[in-house]
Design a protein around this nucleic acid. Sequence first.
DNA 1: CTTACAAGCTTTGTATACAAGCCTGTGAGC
DNA 2: GCTCACAGGCTTGTATACAAAGCTTGTAAG
Lengths: 251, 251
Amino acid sequence: MNPSTANIEESILSAILAGRIPPGTRLGEQKLADLFGVSRTRVREAMMRLETRGIVQVSARRGWFVVEPSADEAREAFQTRRVIETGLLQTVREVPPKVLASLKEHVAIERQAIETGDVSSRACLLGDFHIHLADALGNRLLTEIIRDLTARTTLISMLYQPTEKAEESSHDHEDIVAAMEAGDLAGAARLMDEHIGKVEAGLDLSAKPDPLASLRELLVPSTFSDVAPSMPHAHGAAAPHAHHHPSTKED
Amino acid sequence: MNPSTANIEESILSAILAGRIPPGTRLGEQKLADLFGVSRTRVREAMMRLETRGIVQVSARRGWFVVEPSADEAREAFQTRRVIETGLLQTVREVPPKVLASLKEHVAIERQAIETGDVSSRACLLGDFHIHLADALGNRLLTEIIRDLTARTTLISMLYQPTEKAEESSHDHEDIVAAMEAGDLAGAARLMDEHIGKVEAGLDLSAKPDPLASLRELLVPSTFSDVAPSMPHAHGAAAPHAHHHPSTKED
DNA sequence: CTTACAAGCTTTGTATACAAGCCTGTGAGC
DNA sequence: GCTCACAGGCTTGTATACAAAGCTTGTAAG
C-alpha cells in the first residue's frame, strides 16, 4: 500500500484510539490533503479504507465523519468484543511467561497513569490493554480486528459514557492477568466477560447523541453545561444528556 | 456507499466464497470496468475496499490479485476463526428455536447437495453454515468478520487442501447443531473447535503455493500432473505438490 | 416576526489525462 | 546458437478538472 495513504489512515485511527478525535468529527478531504501534503486522491483512499473498517462514514456531498455508533451498533460492538476476547482466552492453552510479564507491566503503567492523574494517556492505555492481549495471545489478524473494535468502543464511550471508572477497569485488568498467571484461563475469560459487561452497563445507551454537543461545549463554560437553560435547544426537545468527555475512556 | 462499487465488491467476494475464483487470479481494472460498465475509478474503490478486508492485494503496476495466503497466514486465519466461532457459541446463553430450525434446515440442504453430488453448491454451502451461524447467533458486525474470514479460508483450502472431506464436514455441522439443540453450548463450542482443527489438519501447509500451478494444469493432463518429469521446473526446485481443486472446499 | 425561496459558495463525486513501471518481443553482439 | 540490452505496449499510479449537490446566507413576501 502507498505509505502516505497508510500514514493518514494510521494517524486518524490512533488519534481516535487516544481519544483525541470525538465521534462526529468532520474530516474534510481538502483539509486533510493540505495537512498531510498530499492530493485529495490519497485522502479519499485512506477514507474509504477507514470506512471499510467501520471507523468513518461518508455523507454524500457533505463530507467524511467519524462514526457516531447508534445504541444498537454499540451493543453489537460490545457483543463482538465479548465473543472474541473471551474466545481468545478460552482457546489459549497456556500463557508464556514473557506474555504474562508484558501484560503485568502494562497494568502497572495503567495504575501509574491513574495515580498520577494522567488522564490523556490513561484513556489510551485502558484500550491498549485489550490490543496488547490480542497481540500477545493471538495473531496479527486478530489484533487488527480488536484494534478496530476498540476504536469503535472508544467512540461509543465518548458518546454514551456518563461517568468514568478508570480505576475499576484497571483493577479488572489486573484480575484478568492474575487469573491468567494462575493458569485459570476459563476464569480469566469469565472475568473478561464481566469486565466488558460492566463497561457496557456503565453506558447510558438511551442517551441519544446530541447534535449540538460540540457547539454547546464551545459556547458554554463546561462547568455550567448541564445548567444552561438560556441556551436555545433544537426543536424544543429536552436536552439530551449525553455527556462528552473527550479524554475519557472506560475500558 | 456507491451502489456500483458495492456491487463489484460483493460480486467478487461471493464468487470467491462460491469457489469460482481461485487464489492468485488477476483482476485487471480496465477489464472489470468494462465488465461492470463503470469507470476505473469505481473499480479501484472496490479493489481498495477488498484489499482492506484482506481479499485482494495489489502488486505495483502489475495488477490486483486475489490473495494467496502463506502457510503462516493460513494458520492465523484458522486460529482467528477458532477464537471467534467457539467464543460465539460459549457466549450465547440459549438458542432460540427459530435459529435451531434454520440451522437444521441448512444442514439438511448440505447433506442433500452431497448426496446429489452437486459439487459446486456444496462447496458454497459448507462455508455458508458458519456465516449463517454468526448471523443467527451474533450480529451484523460479527457476520461480516466471519464472512471475510470464510472467504480467506476458502482460498486457503484451494491452495493447500489435497483431499476433500465434505461428508465429514457436514457431519460435524450436524453434531454441532445437535449439541446446540441439547442446550450444550460448551459442547457445541468444543465440537466447533475440533471441527475447525480437523479442517486445518487436513491441509498440507508445507506445500508452498505453486506459481506454476495454473500453467501446469493447463498444459499437463491432470491425471499425470504429479508425474510429469518432462515439464521444466522453476529453479530446479522439487515439484510443489499443492493440489488445486477449483470447486473443493473443506469447511 | 416568521417562513419560503433563491443565489452563491463549499465540498464531494467522477472521469480522464498523463506519468511511471513492468512484461514481452526483437535484434545485436559474442 | 545463446545471452543480454533495449524498445514498445499495456497496466496501474496520481493529479487535476469539471460536474453535481449540499449548506449558508440574504432577501422578500405573507
